[in-house]
Simulated assay, not measured.
Amino acid sequence: MKILQKLFQRLNSSTAPEVADSEAQAATDYVDARDCGLVDAVQSGWFQNATDELFTGFAISAEDVVLDIGCGAGGATLFCANRGAHVVFTDVIADKIEALTDKLAQTPARAVEGMVSDSLPLPLADDYATRIIALEVLEHVEDPAQVLGELVRVARPGALFLLAVPDPVGEHIQKDCAAPHYFSHPNHIHIFEREAFAELVKGAGLVIERRASYGFFWTMWMLMYWTQQKHSGEHDSGETHDVVHPPYSALVEDWSSLWRRLIDMPEFSPVKQNLDSLMPKSQVIVARKPS
C-alpha cells in the first residue's frame, strides 16, 4: 500500500479534514483511516503549510523545479504546484498522468510537465531539477541504484532529494501475514535495511542531511488488515499495484478511531514519537547533491 500517496490524495480531496488544528475535531464513532493518517502525518512533519515544507527540511518555493517520480495520484506534485513551482511528474500509468495534468491546470504552478516513464532513463536534460521526490518507489524497481543514479543526473548541483521507502521493521513483520503478492512484482520486491538505504543514497553521490521515520499507526493498521484478511480467507493472488483495498473490517476502523483519539491529546505526542521510532511504516531521507 502506497501510504504516502493515499495521504496526499486525501490532502487534496474536498472531504479532507482540517489538519492544521486536529485537536478541534471531536472523535466520532467512525474515523476514516486516511483522515487519521493525514493528521498523524502532519504531526510527523509532512505537509507543513506554514513553512512550505513538504516534509521537515524539504521546503518548496516558486523558484524550484520539482521532479516527482512515481507520482500516483499526485499529492506531492500538487503541494509543490500550489507553491508556484515548476512541476515535473512521472508514472508508468498514463491515466494517472492525464488526471493529474487536469488537476494541475487549476494551480499556480509556473510550468507543468507530465510524462509516462519508468525513469530509466528520464527524458530530461542533465542538471534540470532543484527538488527531487521519490516516495515509496524504490522498493518497486528492479535496480534501485540505477534509478537513483538517473535522479542524480537530472538534479542540479545543490538540489535537495526527498526519498522514502518502507521501514524494514514493519516489512519483516508483515512477511508473516501479508498476501504473497504484496512482496512480489510489481509490489514490494526490495526490503531496505536502514543502513543499506543510507548507503544506497550515499553511494549515488548524495550527502544525507536528515533521516527520519514515522508511521506506527500504519504499521499496526496493515498488520490488522492482513490478519483479518487471512482470518476471513479473503487473500487474493492478483497482480496489482493496489493490493490493499476496501471494504475494511470493523477491526481496522476501531484502530483508526482509537489512534485518532490518542493523537488528538497533546500529552500523547512523546509516546507517538517513541512508537514511530520503534515500529515505523516508512523511513525518510532528505539529502543534497553536492554543489
Rank of each mutant, 00 (worst) to 15 (best):
H190T: 05
L160A: 12
V165N: 00
G205K: 08
Q146C: 09
H188V: 15
A145H: 11
P166E: 05
A164Q: 07
A164S: 13
V152G: 00
R210W: 10
F183Y: 03
F197Q: 02
A178I: 07
R156V: 08
Q174G: 07
H172K: 14
L151Y: 00
H185N: 15
A198F: 01
F216M: 08
G203Y: 06
E193R: 02
D167M: 04
A179P: 10
L163Y: 04
V154C: 01
E195Y: 10
S184K: 11
I191Q: 00
H172N: 11
I208E: 01
H185S: 12
F197P: 00
S184Y: 10
P157M: 04
V154P: 03
V147M: 12
R194G: 05
Q174S: 09
L200P: 02
Q174D: 09
G203T: 05
L206V: 05
E199S: 12
E195R: 02
G203L: 13
D176L: 13
F216V: 11
Y182M: 15
A155Q: 04
Q146D: 07
G205V: 12
E195S: 06
G203M: 06
G205F: 15
A164Y: 03
I191H: 00
A164D: 09
F192C: 04
S213H: 05
R210S: 08
E209V: 08
V201P: 01
L151G: 05
K175V: 11
F183G: 03
P166S: 06
K202T: 08
K202N: 06
P157F: 14
E209C: 10
Q174K: 15
P168W: 13
K175R: 15
V147W: 15
G149A: 06
A155Y: 09
F192Y: 03
F216D: 03
V207Q: 14
A155D: 11
R194W: 12
R211L: 13
K175H: 14
A198V: 03
E150K: 00
F183W: 01
A198R: 00
F161W: 02
